[in-house]
């Protein structure tokens, strides 16, 4: 160690770089914000008091729980389960399974959710009023053999379910599965092949290897985009009206607003509820990410980054 001498350079006391552009941007934002606030407080048509009243209506709350939230949870469960199955099929050695999964993903990614919901509600019921669950081609076989029974065990009427939340869940869930399949596939591929080999060397069957070793590790890559999908799904339940499902937040809030000729408070009530629900989900997502990241330290693996980029690319075309 040398001691400080006069001719050695000392502490740096430089002038910072100036950013005049930033100050211009701040000024513009401040002006726009002031205009918006001024509109909110001076235009009586906003009528926030009425918006808060709408938010608390029992029909709106019921729509929130039984339409928006139940619809989101239901279609995400269906979407995740079916999506993981499709992903495993896509990665299977069997070309029929691979082909089926590919065609499914292709069809449902190309299908707009609004159109899909309309078809689910009206189109299917138009084609087949009743569904007979039994032996395939049972009625034809029974007829040709002259049997009295037609080999039908169970019958249900599609129209009993159209315009209920279950049709909405089915439609959005089928669509979601196509996106979840891509996410789950990228997640499974992000797990090192040595993991499955180690599990197999210990005597685990392929199914156990997948569920106990590969999928839990794939979760680290699957959870963040699934959180985004869930948040997107909350918003997509507002499409339920395409399937004549009216027990749903957006429809009920705006209905209440338009009945009183207060359209904007109706929109505001729906918006505030969406903001609240989505904010809660975002907090929940960050906890889940921590849980599935255990044992990995900082989640900055090269593999994970790559997989995430793939997922973002796959999900970008919603």
């Amino acid at each position: 160690m040398t001691t400080q001498t006069m001719d050695r350079p000392g502490e740096i006391n430089a002038r910072p770089v100036r950013h005049p552009g930033r100050w211009v941007a701040v000024a513009i934002i401040a002006i726009v914000a002031a205009m918006m606030i001024s509109s909110l407080v001076t235009n009586p048509k906003w009528d926030f008091g009425y918006a808060f009243q709408i938010m608390q209506q029992s029909s709106v709350i019921n729509g929130l729980w039984m339409g928006t939230i139940l619809g989101t949870v239901g279609s995400m469960i269906l979407g995740v389960v079916l999506g993981v199955i499709l992903a495993v099929m896509r990665l299977s050695d069997n070309f029929v399974l691979r082909g089926v999964a590919f065609v499914y993903t292709w069809f449902f990614r190309a299908m707009p959710r609004y159109v899909l919901l309309a078809i689910m509600a009206s189109g299917v019921g138009y084609l087949y009023n009743k569904f007979d669950i039994g032996v395939p081609f049972g009625q034809q076989i029974a007829k040709s053999l002259g049997l009295s029974s037609d080999l039908t065990f169970f019958q249900f009427n599609w129209n009993d379910y159209s315009s209920t939340v279950w049709i909405g869940i089915l439609g959005l869930g089928l669509s979601e599965a196509a996106y979840m399949a891509e996410i789950a596939r990228a997640g499974i591929l992000s797990v090192d092949k040595g993991q499955a080999e180690a599990a197999q060397a210990l005597g685990m069957s392929p199914g156990m290897t997948m569920t106990r070793i590969v999928l839990p590790q794939a979760m680290r890559v699957i959870v963040p985009p699934t959180g985004n999908e869930t948040i997107a799904m909350v918003k997509d339940t507002s499409l339920f009206i395409a399937a004549n499902v009216i027990t749903e937040l957006y429809y009920q809030s705006t209905l209440f607003g338009s009945k009183a000729f207060k359209i904007m408070p109706g929109f505001v009530a729906a918006t505030l509820w969406y903001l609240i629900v989505c904010s809660i989900l975002m907090v929940g997502q960050s906890y889940l990410e921590k849980y599935y990241g255990r044992g990995f330290g900082a989640p900055t693996g090269k593999k994970r980054k790559k997989a995430e980029q793939k997922i973002i690319a796959a999900g970008a075309d919603h």
Binding site: G194, Q195, A198, Q200, L202, R294, G295, F296
Partner: peptide, 18 residues
């Protein structure tokens, strides 16, 4: 495979388990 243990060059421990 249950009666045959294998040790790999790259360990292949399950990182999500203690």
């Amino acid at each position: 495979r249950r009666d045959i243990g294998m040790v790999f060059q790259r360990f292949n421990l399950f990182p999500h388990k203690t």
